[in-house]
Design a protein around this nucleic acid. Structure first.
Lengths: 229, 229
DNA sequence: CTTTAACAAACCGACCGTCGGTCTATTTAT
DNA sequence: ATAAATAGACCGACGGTCGGTTTGTTAAAG
């Protein structure tokens, strides 16, 4: 009883630190964020911080871990639904991805800038690696279902989840790149659309899906990202 | 005349620093490498170093720049050859990639470890970004040729170069991951082979190529990487 | 009363980048 | 031709930042 309360308190305090740290990573980037920043914000001492985390990299690891769990909590139920065709599962999966992004970084564009900083390379790198490693199998399950339903085809149902996820990631990076590289008011939308189209065709072919059967993002939503820029 | 000599001397000195720095990045990683390491090795002062480079990141940028130029020097002539079918150009392109890697990091596996360190995330990140940005157009030219020759097909000949290059990169990362994650003697070769097969199928489909028409790496060469492990 | 978790805060050491200054070669003025 | 002036290459000590450690204190649990 007392043990459990203690553990909860411990976890809660730890999560407070994680919250602040995650927000700082999002607002100023991982490398520029100092431990002192966290201490100042929470009005705690260095001893307190290093009581909960071994090091700065360990802190990052914990942040990524928490993110991963959040994604899994969204995706696993989706995979397990027995009543939904694979194509719809896949589309919802993609929506979830987009949605999750918008949730995590509420002011998408401002935070996008920080996210794609050199200072954040480690974060992007590690998140992507863990994402591919842990989410790809879930995606693979969806894909296998689609193959069984006869809408998709692949010789490597186990590995193609990773390929697809990588492609989605590459597309995101490319689109983000266009968005960020466009700040002297040269409209990035056309380039974004072409990239989206090209990657969509690639995804369809990799899945052996019918041309035009996959929509990665709603074009309207894509267009909205540019107006705020 | 004197001017030119001066400039050459300047470039030569700068290149000496770049050589040492690049080797240090390869052997101990970018972040762990200190400016002092470079100074010690070359027996020069800090002032000398900062006379040639503005900062540590600027040094990295210069290293990547030089690498890029080397790659271009290999790929551009290949693209421009008028007498070679696209399929062979593509295969040679892939060979060049593999070959270049082996050249740059002479003891592949030892250096692979360093290359895929968190400490090197920025380097990988930036190299890949620039690679995709600058080499993808060259690849696109090859692909367009293939489309004209009727061996490939795509609705987006301009963008698909980027997609293909990304896939090759993702494959490399995956294979490297298997290689590095396998050190308690669990043979990574089968997993590497499956990944290779899956990504190869993906590449063929993205290019609209005939199944079995593309070989990313010689399986024998792939196998060799594991024996040294 | 003892022990241990949860802090606090001074402190250490590694590093990057700066800055005042030197030495040499080239150019300009006389 | 010679001296003065300037530019560029180079030196190395020093400042400041930041991650991490160590030592000390408090308070609750047992």
């Amino acid at each position: 009883m007392a043990r459990i309360v203690k553990e909860q308190e411990y976890a809660a305090r730890r999560n407070e630190i994680l919250d602040v740290a995650q927000r700082l990573v999002a607002t100023k980037g991982y490398a520029p964020m100092t431990i002192q920043d966290i201490l100042d914000e929470l009005q705690i001492s260095k001893g307190a911080f290093y009581h909960y985390f071994d090091s700065k990299p360990a802190l990052l690891e914990a942040i990524l871990e928490r993110m991963l769990r959040q994604v899994e909590a969204l995706v696993i139920p989706l995979v397990e639904r027995a009543d939904m065709p694979a194509v719809e599962k896949f589309h919802r999966f993609l929506d979830t991805a987009a949605q999750w992004k918008t949730e995590q970084k509420s002011f998408v564009l401002a935070l996008l800038r920080v996210w794609y900083t050199d200072e954040n390379a480690v974060v992007r790198q590690k998140l992507r690696a863990r994402m591919v490693k842990e989410v790809a199998p879930l995606l693979a399950a969806i894909i296998q279902q689609g193959v069984q339903e006869g809408v998709w085809s692949t010789g490597y149902p186990d590995q193609v989840g990773e390929v697809v996820l990588s492609l989605v990631y590459d597309l995101s990076d490319t689109v983000a790149g266009h968005l960020l590289a466009s700040y002297p008011a040269c409209d990035p939308l056309p380039r974004m659309q072409r990239s989206l189209a090209a990657y969509t065709e690639a995804l369809e072919r990799v899945l052996g899906a019918a041309p035009g059967s996959i929509q990665v993002i709603d074009p309207a939503i894509l267009a909205e990202w540019t107006v705020s820029a």
